[in-house]
Structures are given as C-alpha cells and as structure tokens.
C-alpha cells in the first residue's frame, strides 16, 4: 500500500566560526581607467564569493562590474582569509571588501576635492560619479579622477579593509557559557512523502523550503545554494552512508557506484522561498546560508515518514530495509 505523509523541520544556523578570533582582509587598487583590482584571499569553492565580492565593490565604488579584476588565487598576492567554511565568507569577506572600498573611496574623494575646489565632506558618490552636494553640475567620473590621480599626480590609490571577529567572550565559565554567536540564520522545510509499505521505498513528493539570508546579495547564487544544500540533505536522508557496517570499518564504498549521491532522478519538485531578516553587522545585513540549507530536509522527511506510516526514524539513511523492519515490529506490537 502507498501511504502519504507530511513533516516539518525548523532550524537555525550560525554565521562564522564558533570561537571567533578570525579575520578576512581585502585590498583594492584603482586602475588609471577607473577600473579596479580587488585582492581577496577567500577560496572560491563554487559558492560564489568572487561574484559577491565584485558586486559589492562595484556598488561601493561606482565601478562597473566588468572593470573589476579579482585576484584571489595565491597567498603571495592577497591578505588573510581564514577560509571558506562556517558559512562565513559572504559575511566576513563582504564586510572586508566594503571596508576596503570605503577606504579607496575616501582617497578618491580627497583627490577629487582638490580638483573640484571643495572639501571631501561635500562629496558623495552617485552611480559612477563623484558629485558635489548642492551643486549637481560639479562632478567627476571615477574614470576621470582615477586618470588624474594616476597619470597627472602619479599617486597610487590603494584601499584596505578587514573584518575581525573577536574571540568568544566568556559569559559564565562555570556553566560553560560563551558568547559564540556572530549572527543566526533560520530555515524550515515541509516535506511530503509517499511510503510504499510493500517495498519500503520512500518517495519524496515535494519539498517546500524557506531560508533566511538576512539580505540576499545575489538571488541567483543564493537559490543555487538552497537547491544544492537541500538535495544534499535528501542524499543524507535516503541514500548516503560512508560506513554501512558501522561501527566496524569493513566493506566501505569504493566507487561512486557504491556511495550513492543524488542524481537528476532523485530531485523532487521543490519550491524555495527566501526571507530577509537582517543581521546587525553583516554586509547590508547578510548572513551565511551555505551550510544550513543541507540541514532541514532530513528531519522534515523523517517526520513525514512518521506521518505516513507511524514509524519513527531515529537514524538515517532511511533504507527500504529499515522501513520494512520497522513496519514489521510495528505489526508485532
């Protein structure tokens, strides 16, 4: 018989390392044509920091995206970034790039003020122009001032910035309480499943997901993180086990034919929604979502299985054998 059920799960996930005490540094060089070189040591593992960093720099300096060159390949050419883990890079590198941009912008304003015969505090950035307050006709493009500074004055504009998280503050040593939170993001999934009580097969019919990004820097990439994370969660729930004869260490999967991860055939219809509850100190309020997207599907599917057949899933992956065994002991009880 095929039985259907629904299950929900709600989670939170921290942005940044639990212990704190880590940094990301960035610096930016303004090219004579008004473009920029951005130097950032954050590793790109597919999540999209290169894109996010250039978007932020473009907005903060009025420099077109396609005139930004990102250098992030080597430790000789970049400042420190502790690493691409702990859902930390958009938050940390985003803030570092903003700080570096602010520094470069201030230098640009100082030179532009000389040219325009005003004080730097009278200047602001509008699109790709530096304009004088109350005198909309008095302005210079970034390209104009960058050319002047580099070619006529011979100066280098180098903006630098970083984001440093203090090590966690001890709140109550006796109770092991320590302030480890940079910010928290939230997520929830509703799973609808169908369980075949004869074969033990579980089919995920639909997943509805909501994730809180704080502020989405790039919806295309954020949606991609959600899709990928949720599907990884489906894999953990229904198929993946790197040590099937645990606790022994025998007969471990040796190929991707043995260690099964989701394929195109395993992706159920999904609907994902992004909500934005800003963090206090992230760039534009952003939070990290890289990891948490993998955490909602498993409990939601497990709970949906209970709803369908009245069997609790206390350990994953949920194999057909497990379902059949559980149904059998349910019948005996």
């Amino acid at each position: 018989m095929k039985k259907r059920g629904k299950g929900v799960a709600l989670i939170y996930y921290p942005t940044g390392m639990a212990g704190g005490g880590d940094t990301t540094q960035a610096f930016v060089k303004i090219k004579p044509d008004g473009g920029a070189d951005l130097f950032l040591g954050s590793c790109e593992i597919g999540q999209g920091i290169k894109t996010v960093a250039c978007q932020i720099l473009s907005d903060e300096l009025g420099i077109p995206y396609d005139q930004i060159v990102l250098h992030n390949s080597s430790t000789d050419d970049t400042g420190i970034c502790t690493g691409t883990f702990a859902s930390r890079v958009t938050y940390f590198a985003g803030n570092a790039v903003r700080a570096a941009a602010a520094d470069a912008r201030q230098q640009l304003f100082e030179y532009a003020a000389l040219e325009l015969g005003v004080t730097p505090s009278e200047l602001s950035l509008q699109d790709n122009k530096i304009v004088v307050a109350n005198e909309p006709n008095k302005s210079m493009t970034i390209a104009e001032i960058a050319g002047k500074v580099n070619w006529t004055m011979g100066k280098l504009i180098l903006g630098k910035g970083n984001f440093w998280k203090e090590p966690g503050r001890i709140i109550d040593a006796e109770n092991g309480q320590i302030d480890v939170i940079t910010t928290l993001a939230y997520g929830a999934t509703l799973a609808e499943v169908e369980v075949d009580t004869e074969t033990g097969q579980v089919e995920v019919l639909k997943l509805t997901n909501v994730f809180d990004t704080g502020k989405t820097i790039n919806p295309l990439l954020a949606e991609g993180q959600i899709d990928g994370g949720v599907v990884m969660g489906i894999g953990s729930t229904l198929m993946e086990n790197a040590n099937p004869y645990y606790p022994t260490d025998n007969l471990k999967p040796k190929t991707l034919g043995d260690y099964i991860i989701p394929t195109t055939m395993d992706v159920p219809p999904m609907q994902s929604f992004i909500v934005e509850y800003p963090s206090a100190n992230g760039p534009y309020g952003a939070k990290g979502i890289g990891e948490m997207t993998a955490n909602t599907a498993s409990p939601a599917i497990a709970n949906a299985i209970y709803d369908a057949i009245g069997v609790w899933i206390n350990d994953i992956p949920v194999t057909p054998e497990k379902i059949l065994k559980a149904l059998e002991s349910q019948n005996m009880a």
């Binding site: 597919g46 949606e223 991609g224 899709d227 990928g228 994370g229 949720v230 599907v231 990884m232 991707l256 991860i261 989701p262 394929t263 195109t264 055939m265 992706v267 999904m270």
Partner: peptide, 16 residues
Amino acid sequence: REALSGNLCRCTGYVN
C-alpha cells in the same frame, strides 16, 4: 533528467 542521470553534480541540486 534521464539524459543527464549519468552525470553527477554535488553543488547545484540539478535544478538550474
């Protein structure tokens, strides 16, 4: 889906 079922991707969840 069928045509791509022999190609694994760990990042995208295949949706895009």
